[in-house]
């Protein structure tokens, strides 16, 4: 059995497989800073590799439900279970990284929500020790603003931002969940200074968003998959708390590097 600790957001999960081929894929996919052999894992996931089936669409919608004391995660290209009480889980998937990425995103969304944390559809980067988040739907400019980041900015992700409570504020962590930039983020963290909702326009402009509008917009950009009313309420509370603590702006920008002059 091969095993590796994949640590994202300071939370490690031990992933085990009997497939040397898949172990190599894991090392390659998460080895750029997200494998931490000395981390204390929260739980273990055993991966069974199966040949790709006829229903292996990674773009299909995931189903996430709590049944009989365990979470059941299902999509065209994987089937997974996680039993929080027993501290272990199981994945059946093909030997490629997309399914594992999806399972990790879902598991971390479940872990985060009980801590007041969030996975946000946002790019993020660290500048001068502070993290800035750039959120928006596909095409809003997450990849563009990531690509335009100057050298003094450390990219945490161009696609999915990982946010945890940190004292009276929040801390953003790097993630391996890459978007169009296809570049894994740096596994570092920093206090969140601001959240920007992106729009492309004829000039660079920053406008403060009212808390209610900020909350509504943030809720539309949170990644959460579970069909569970209690947890949905926790997501709502976490989003409201976040916009109460973190300055939120609308950032209209021209797609060139000058936009970063405004991000200080």
């Amino acid at each position: 059995m091969h095993g590796t600790c994949i640590e994202i957001g300071g939370m490690a999960i031990l992933v085990r497989t009997e497939s040397p081929e898949f172990f190599g894929i894991l090392e390659e996919r998460y080895g750029g800073g997200f494998v931490n052999p000395s981390a204390e894992p929260l739980f273990a996931l055993d991966v069974e590799i199966v040949p790709p089936g006829s229903n292996s669409d990674p773009d299909a919608e995931a189903s996430v439900r709590f049944e009989g004391g365990r979470w059941v995660l299902e999509r065209g290209d994987f089937y997974a279970e996680w039993n929080p009480g027993l501290g272990r889980g199981y994945i059946r998937q093909g030997a490629y990284p997309y399914a594992m990425d999806a399972v990790l995103r879902i598991l971390h969304s479940l872990l985060l929500v009980r801590q007041g944390g969030l996975l946000i559809h946002a790019a993020s980067g660290v500048r001068n020790g502070r993290a800035f988040l750039f959120s928006g739907v596909s095409g809003a400019g997450k990849t563009t603003i990531s690509r335009l980041a100057p050298q003094d900015v450390t990219l945490l992700t161009d696609e999915i931002s990982y946010v945890r409570r940190d004292g009276d504020g929040y801390r953003a962590f790097g993630t391996p969940f890459a978007g169009e930039l296809a570049k894994v983020g740096e596994n570092i963290s920093a206090p969140v200074a601001a959240l920007y909702f992106l729009a492309q326009g004829p000039e660079n402009r920053i406008e403060t968003m009212a808390p209610a509008e900020a909350g509504r917009t943030l809720l539309r950009n949170i990644l959460f998959f579970a069909e569970d009313a209690e947890l949905v309420k926790l997501v709502f509370d976490a989003a409201c708390e976040f916009v109460s603590k973190v300055p939120v702006y609308r950032l209209t920008f021209v797609p060139d590097g000058r936009v970063w002059d405004l991000i200080v």
Binding site: A210, P211, A212, G215, V232
Partner: peptide, 14 residues
């Protein structure tokens, strides 16, 4: 779930 945010009541159906 409901919350007052900046003077507006936001409600979400769970």
């Amino acid at each position: 779930a409901s919350r007052m945010l900046g003077g507006e009541m936001i409600i979400m159906s769970a």
